[in-house]
Design a protein around this nucleic acid. Sequence first.
RNA 1: GGCCCCAUCGUCUAGUCAGGUCUAGGACACCAGGUUUUCAUCCUGGGAACAGGGGUUCGAAUCCCCUUGGGGUCACCA
Length: 577
Amino acid sequence: MSQPVITRFAPSPTGHLHIGGARTALFCWALARRAEREGSGGSGGGGGRFVLRIEDTDQARSSEDASRGILEDLAWLGIDWDDGPEFEANGKTLGGDPRGVGPFRQALRLDTYNRFFDQLLDRGLAYAAFDTPEELAAMRETAKSEKRTFRYTKPEKYDAGAARERMQSEPHVLRLAMPTDPIVVHDEILGEITFTQEHFDDFVIRKNDGFPTYHFAVVIDDELMGVTHVVRGQEHLNNTSKHVGLQSLLKHHDGRPFRVPSYAHVPLISNPDGSKMSKRDKDKAARAAAKDARLTASPIAGLSDDALAKWMKDKKAQLDTGPLSALAEHLAVDLPAIEVADFEAAGYLPGVVCNFIALLGWNPGVKDAEGKDLERFDMEYLAERFAFDRAGTSASKFDREKLLAFNADTIQHELDDDAFAALWRTWLERFEPWVLETLGDRFERAARATRPRARTLRDAIEPIRFALIDDDQIVYDDKAVQKGLKKGEPSGLALLERFAPQLSAIEPFEPETIESAVKAFAESQEVGLGKIAAPLRVALTGTSVSPPLGETLGLLGREICIERVARTIGEHTQTSA
RNA sequence: GGCCCCAUCGUCUAGUCAGGUCUAGGACACCAGGUUUUCAUCCUGGGAACAGGGGUUCGAAUCCCCUUGGGGUCACCA
């Protein structure tokens, strides 16, 4: 009889969802979904639930916008939650509170935390501390100079009665009287880890402002929400002893002890150079470009000259997302994709992103039909087989090239024209609506022409850009003109002149008929297809590169083709004469 | 610096838990050929790794120890 599996993802709403956070969420989700599937079939199965909780106990840094952004990012990835803030996505409502364990924003749960603070106070397991931040800093400084690890412990002559008195009127924090026994953590990925006393001290559980600290809120909420499996980044590993310590002390109000959930600490994801992947990388890229451009005045409305100068000088300074992307656009630099929203804007498909990040630390361990390691799979597959017994232990570097290859493969080989067109349309509507407007009823044709060449939904614009510009905006590439029009006998230009009249005769003006007309013409001239293809490409696009001729001409339409060919003949005949 | 975690091609990894089938397999990237009207795709081939040292064993990528290297963490942030 299997136990229920309840996992949770608990981001703090201080910015967009980071790609590392996305992987953690994905693993949590997959673990719960797998249990859900296995539980629903048999009798006595526990099932699975995935809880989303917003950790907004830092009043200064949390924002409503960021919170909504994270929900959007998760929904886009296809990670749906059972319990948590309600969110509409694709006509489906995610979240809600069917089990009555909410609310799921910690700022709304202060009453709950306070009941447990009272409990610990009453049982003498928590105590008030009145040290100022300055005093604490001084103590840390002293410890450092004496080469000791700073650990806060309860003063020996602590007067509980007096403290209770002072609490009424003086600012204070609550600290936990932490037990000193070693704490053993069983981690599903790393195995058994023993933390001895020097790892923990009497840490703060309630801040000066009355809000719980992360450690306290996490333990209370996980218990009350029935969380059975805690999956999080390895940067939290050292915190676990604090959490287990808290769990060993706390009791429900009916006397039941807190459970110790199962822990899994997933290895970190870093940049190729080993540095931490963070929003700072975007600032770094933009700053380098700003310095190259010798920017002295801010070109951005929401950014003052002073703020710009300060940011350019300080390597660690960060700009808000808005001004940062405006600045990047102004400087024409591509910012590295770090957050989930960046990958969406860059034209990656959510299923591919999930597939790729799942592979950073997990693999199915299955061979495909050709005997090669299976590494392409969808959410469904993950939900069926994900478990930590196949999770990796070492940190991985984020290889954008491989992600791009996966994305390209999906667009070019797994999607059909209709599926791609639908995805591309939706993406363009949101990110580049002008493309859709310019294309008008030529959209489907453009989608067919670009799909085999597209690696992302964004770069799908490039192969058909010639159809987005006016005839007089064509920039003729020198090399292409030389090779395509001038060279050879007969020259490309000569062939083009001979072919031009035939454009009005092709009926209907569709890729297939165009293609055969061009082929027939080449045969009639006793030249290879390339001889006429090259000058046509130059005439229509200004370059030597374009989709197959039929699709290129078909996309432009007869009139524009005739116009561009005439224009090319006119210009290049005169200048070369 | 203390403590914790980690260590297979450039990168993600299979193989490690149950030592022999591993002259270490796959993917991405790279290089060379081929198909193709350009681009893209596709096909074929190639180079490329068990961090170092000790031990255990008939036998170690696999188990143990040390060294080295990388990462994390030491807040009234999460």
